[in-house]
Every structure is written in C-alpha cells, then in structure tokens.
C-alpha cells in the first residue's frame, strides 16, 4: 500500500479531532451576540479605520530570501543523503553551492535589506 495513505489518514484524523472539539463547543456554548460584543477588539475603544495596514517592504524581502534558501535546502537534501558514500569532491561541490548563496546573503546584508529599520 502506498505509504502516503498513512499520511493522508493522519491528516484526516488530525482534522477530525479539532473539528469535533469546535463542534462540541458550538453545541454546548451559549449564543447571545450583540453589536458591541462582536465589534473588533481594539483595547475597549471603538475600532478606528480598516484592519488593513500598510506593511513594510522588509516582509517581502525576508520571504524572498527565505524562498531562495528553501530551494537551496531542497537541493542539498539529496546531496546530504548520498554524501557518506561519495568522495571529497562531492563535499567540495556542496561547499561551492552553499558559498555562492552566502554571497547573496552578504549582498543583502551590505545593502541593509536584512535590517528592520
């Protein structure tokens, strides 16, 4: 049997448990909504404006740098699995691969893009 069926079952049961708990809460809890109770929480003061706020460009940069390193790690996992059976040349290949990306990290740092200013 495909081993991913086990994973699928874990996901299904893992969703059923919280759904069950929330449904139990929905059945047992009182429901007495009123406009003040349902208003957005803003420290007891009436909410001002939209919840939408302008975000810093840094979030985008962090996500992009992360994406680059995520893809890098994906490439490195097969390399790491096989490393024990390969010679020194494979280690050097991996080191070159990582070093090229560290240059990018250094560039982003020198440009001040990794700082939360």
């Amino acid at each position: 049997m495909n081993e991913w069926l086990y994973v699928a079952l874990f996901m299904i049961v893992g969703a059923i448990i919280p759904i069950g708990a929330i449904l139990a809460g929905a059945i047992l809890s009182p429901k007495k909504p009123n406009p003040i109770k349902q208003s957005t929480y803003e420290c007891g003061i009436e909410p001002v404006g939209d919840a939408w706020v302008q975000f810093k460009v840094q979030y985008y940069i962090f996500a992009l740098v992360f994406l680059v390193f995520d893809v890098e790690a994906v490439f490195l996992f097969p390399w790491a699995v096989k490393l024990g059976q390969l010679g020194l040349y494979a280690v050097v290949e991996g080191i070159i691969f990582i070093s090229i990306l560290v240059v990018g990290l250094l560039y982003a740092w020198r440009k001040g893009m990794l700082e939360w200013s």
Partner: peptide
C-alpha cells in the same frame, strides 16, 4: 470552561 464559553466571531 472553554467548551461552554460563547464563541464570538468579530464583525467583518
């Protein structure tokens, strides 16, 4: 206590 707490969905 958590189960019998009212579940509030905020406006919007």
């Amino acid at each position: 206590k958590l189960v019998i707490k009212e579940d509030i969905t905020p406006n919007g």
